[in-house]
Design a binder for these strands. Structure first.
Length: 116
DNA sequence: GGCATGATTGTTCAG
DNA sequence: CTGAACAATCATGCC
């Protein structure tokens, strides 16, 4: 059994992120993460779902979407995953700059960027 | 070196 | 605007 401990514990974290998704920021530069295959998958499917379910609302579409998603085959998700992988690469980049700036900023007091 | 954690991402729909 | 089911993720920190 593949790390059920990880899974069980993970599940817990999930229930938190759901609500605590937005609270206080930790990093000022917030390197943010990458999107998920689901994000890309939904972007492509959202039109289809509504196309075939013009009456379906969030409840139907949401559940239907997820249901179909799992229903798809690994190869079907592949294209979405690939997109996710693409975004992941971009996330990597942003993070690179994040920790990169972080380090550079370490001492100088240059007016670096932003802030809000 | 592996585990747990957290943060995040996007859709739809509504008051 | 924001949240809530729906799902993945996966990078990072932590000893």
């Amino acid at each position: 059994m593949p790390k059920e401990s990880t899974r069980a514990t993970k599940r817990k974290a999930a229930d938190k992120s759901e609500k605590a998704a937005k609270k206080g920021k930790k990093d000022k530069n917030a390197p943010k993460r990458a999107l998920s295959a689901y994000m890309f998958f939904s972007q492509d499917w959202r039109e289809r779902i509504k196309a075939e379910n013009p009456d379906a609302g969030f409840g139907e579409i949401g559940k239907l979407l997820g249901a179909k998603w799992k229903e798809l085959d690994e190869s079907e998700k592949k294209p979405y995953i690939e997109q996710a992988a693409r975004d992941k690469a971009r996330a990597e980049e942003e993070k690179s700059a994040y920790d990169g700036k972080k380090a550079a900023d370490s001492g100088s007091g240059d007016g670096e960027d932003d802030d809000e």
